[in-house]
Every structure is written in C-alpha cells, then in structure tokens.
C-alpha cells in the first residue's frame, strides 16, 4: 500500500528530525553556558575599569591595563563562540526545514495520496497529514526561536549592563517559541506507533 510506504519514509524523516532536536538541545546548553560566562565577565568590567577598585594591586605597574585588555579579549572570544553556536543552530534549523520540505514533496509526488487518503489514521498511527503537520511545526518553532536568539545575541556588547545580560540569558534559556513538551509528543507518537506495528 502506497500510504504505508510513505508513512515508513515519514518515520525515517521523524528519526532525522529527532536527531536534529537533540543537536539543538546540545547547542542550547552550550549557548546558556556561554551566556552565563559572558554575564559574569560583563559584571566584572566596571570594577576593572575603575582604578579605585584595584586595592593593593594598584601598586603593580601596568596591571590594570593588562587585566582589562585580557578580560576584553576573553569577552571577544566568547562572543565569537556564541556566534559560532548560533551558526550551528542555523544549520540545525535549515536541516529541519529540509526534512519538513522533503516530507511535503514526498506526498505531493505520489498521486495516489489524495487528501482523503492522507487524512486517514489507523488507530494510534497518525495520519500522513498529521505527520506532515508535525514536521512542519517542529521546523517552524525552531526557525522562530532562532530569529529570537539571533536578536538576543545581537544585544551582547562590551557596554551591555549586567541586568541586560541577565535578561538576555533568561530569554535565551526560556526558548519562548519552542514548546518542548509538544515537540517531544510529536516525535514520540510517531516513534511509539512504529513499535506497535512491528509487534
């Protein structure tokens, strides 16, 4: 049956999507950790810029300049790492979009898959339409989130305040566009029904 074959291919795309979701999660952890370090560094900069904060270290020649330049250098490197992290997230989002488009094309190219056939769901097995919608939804959520993250990372500057950075880090961690539970459900339904079919 044509719909059975398509469903099998859709499952394979879901497995690929699952791998991308895991890659995204790892990048999210890396981004959060980088932002935490960035916030710590940015919170220290006003003290490093203030000659009155050096205490006994003020007596050491050149130390304030050296310390500040080294700290700014680390800040610079971390911002670059955060940009790299975002580039990797862009690659993940692109890959997700490709999987969703591939699924659409798969169904469009098979003339036997009429809208009625696509809407049929057999027991717990989701219909082809539901599978397509699921993939598109996961891709859309991550693409939206990536746009937000890009805007947030754009806000990270040398002169950002500690409070701004805390807000950026909180928004970055919150992933407002991604409903984690819903993504897990979408992936789980397809994976779980595959096991039942095998039995």
């Amino acid at each position: 049956m044509a719909s059975g074959r398509v469903l099998e291919k859709l499952r394979q795309l879901y497995a690929k999507m699952d791998a991308e979701v895991k890659r995204w999660a790892a990048l999210q952890d890396r981004g959060i950790s980088l932002l935490r370090t960035l916030t710590n560094i940015i919170s220290r900069i006003p003290a490093l810029e203030d000659p009155g904060s050096y205490g006994v270290l003020a007596a050491l020649p050149n130390l304030p300049t050296l310390l500040l330049s080294k700290q700014l250098q680390s800040l610079d490197e971390l911002i670059v790492q955060l940009q790299d992290c975002l580039d990797d997230a862009q690659a993940v989002a692109d890959s997700m979009a490709r999987h969703a488009q591939q699924a659409q094309r798969l169904v469009q190219h098979d003339r036997s898959l009429t809208p009625a056939v696509c809407a049929v769901s057999a027991g717990p097995v989701p219909s082809i339409t539901q599978c397509l919608e699921g993939l598109a939804e996961i891709s859309r959520m991550h693409a939206d989130e990536l746009r937000l993250k890009s805007a947030l990372v754009f806000e990270v500057r040398y002169d950002s305040s500690e409070a701004d950075m805390q807000q950026v880090a909180a928004l970055y961690a919150a992933q407002l566009h991604i409903d984690g539970g819903h993504v897990r459900d979408l992936l789980h339904v397809v994976a779980a029904t595959e096991e039942r079919r095998r039995l």
């Binding site: 003290a47 490093l48 904060s53 205490g55 080294k70």
Partner: peptide, 19 residues
C-alpha cells in the same frame, strides 16, 4: 560596594593571569 568591586578585581587577577 567598594569591597565587592575590589574582591572582583582580585578574583579576576587570580583567574586571568594577565602577564
């Protein structure tokens, strides 16, 4: 606040090894 800033500088100086 002054003490906190000074300790921040001390911590950074220990951590960064500027030289």
């Amino acid at each position: 606040d002054k003490l906190r800033r000074t300790m921040q500088v001390y911590l950074t100086a220990w951590l960064l090894s500027a030289h």
